[in-house]
């Protein structure tokens, strides 16, 4: 099985689907000739031509609005937003239009598409090349939200998303684009949406993470193990609709939970997860649920390693929760 990093795995998934389904088109800023600023779409315009891998003018509203039109026609557009920090000019099209099309047309006009976009910090990107805006989209009824942590899942989840009937926001954690390498099957396979993965089994504390922070959670869990604390680490993979059964089952087992995310704390996805656990597993909780997150400030430049919820900050939360 070939070794791939996440950039190559996503490229591979896009190539397979472009070959398999003539309705698939890629569009976005710099995605064609150079293959994207992170080179995720490299070589695809060469193979499939400029009508299927399209360099667009610089307008996210234009990209998503046009992609919606293509989807209504019956195509399978895969728009790229160069950084998820630049998704906001398209917010109206995503939130007011894309998310509501199926519902507001009584099912007449579904608009399936996958919006790919790099997410997260730790690459010295400052305010506008680092943010994690997933909560805005989870909050919007009608959107699915996916965030893989490794190359195998990235390919399988992307292929599943590309075949899903509903709009999917596919967040690619750019901090681990090239860092994480893994064996990735060459051909077609899918990783089903809404299925979390237990990355590390344990009975002491459940740690919920996704994307680049999964590695920080694992590092903290391994360190905690040295202190006699047995953590179970859950990689959500699909944020919404979340794999509620997996989350609840793990917390019922451990009775303790720490949620980790890069996005600011208040109204971040951690808040929803903990509310769900209060509703569904309250009587099993043996300690107050804890969030280790980005702070409620804009994403900083020089101090980004202080801002991010890295292993050094996760570990004390695990210890405290375990000993509560």
């Amino acid at each position: 099985m070939p070794q791939m990093n996440m950039v190559q795995a996503i490229n591979d998934a896009l190539r397979l689907e472009l070959r398999r389904d003539p309705r698939v088109v890629l569009l976005g800023e710099d995605v064609g000739k150079v293959g994207g600023v992170f080179r995720v779409t490299q070589g695809l315009q060469e193979e499939f031509g400029a009508d299927r891998v399209i360099d667009t003018p610089l307008s996210e509203g234009g990209i998503i609005g046009a992609a919606i039109g293509m989807a209504l026609y019956g195509m399978r557009p895969v728009p790229e937003i160069q950084f998820s920090d630049f998704i906001f000019p398209a917010f109206d099209q995503i939130v007011s239009e894309l998310a509501k099309f199926r519902y507001r047309s009584g099912g007449e006009y579904p608009a399936g598409m996958v919006i790919r976009t790099p997410v997260g910090g730790g690459i010295r990107g400052g305010h506008y090349h680092s943010q994690s805006p997933e909560a805005y989209f989870i909050h919007t009824p009608g959107l699915k939200v996916v965030c893989p942590s490794n190359p195998y899942d990235a390919k399988g989840l992307l292929l599943a998303s590309l075949r899903d009937p509903d709009p999917v926001l596919f967040f690619e954690p750019k901090r681990v684009y090239r860092a994480a390498r893994a064996e990735v099957p060459e051909g077609d396979y899918t990783v089903p949406l809404s299925q979390a993965r237990v990355v590390r089994e344990g009975r002491g504390v459940t740690v919920i993470a996704w994307g680049a922070m999964l590695y920080e959670a694992l590092e903290a869990a391994n360190e905690a193990a040295r202190q006699g604390i047995d953590c179970e680490v859950l990689d959500l993979r699909t944020l919404w609709p979340v794999d509620i059964d997996a989350v609840v089952a793990s917390v019922k087992k451990t009775g303790r939970v720490v949620v980790v995310h890069e996005a600011p704390r208040s109204c971040g996805f951690g808040a929803e997860l903990i509310a769900l656990l209060n509703e569904k597993a309250f009587l099993h909780l043996e300690a107050p649920p804890v969030r280790v997150t980005g702070y409620d400030t804009p994403f900083p430049y020089t101090l980004e390693m202080d801002y991010l919820p890295l292993a050094a900050r996760i570990l004390p939360a695990l210890v405290e929760t375990a000993r509560y």
């Binding site: 020089t302 101090l303 390693m305 570990l315």
Partner: peptide, 13 residues
């Protein structure tokens, strides 16, 4: 934050 352990790489130029 001030009480938290600082990760390596903070304050790097």
């Amino acid at each position: 934050c001030l009480a938290a352990p600082r990760a390596r790489g903070h304050g790097a130029h």
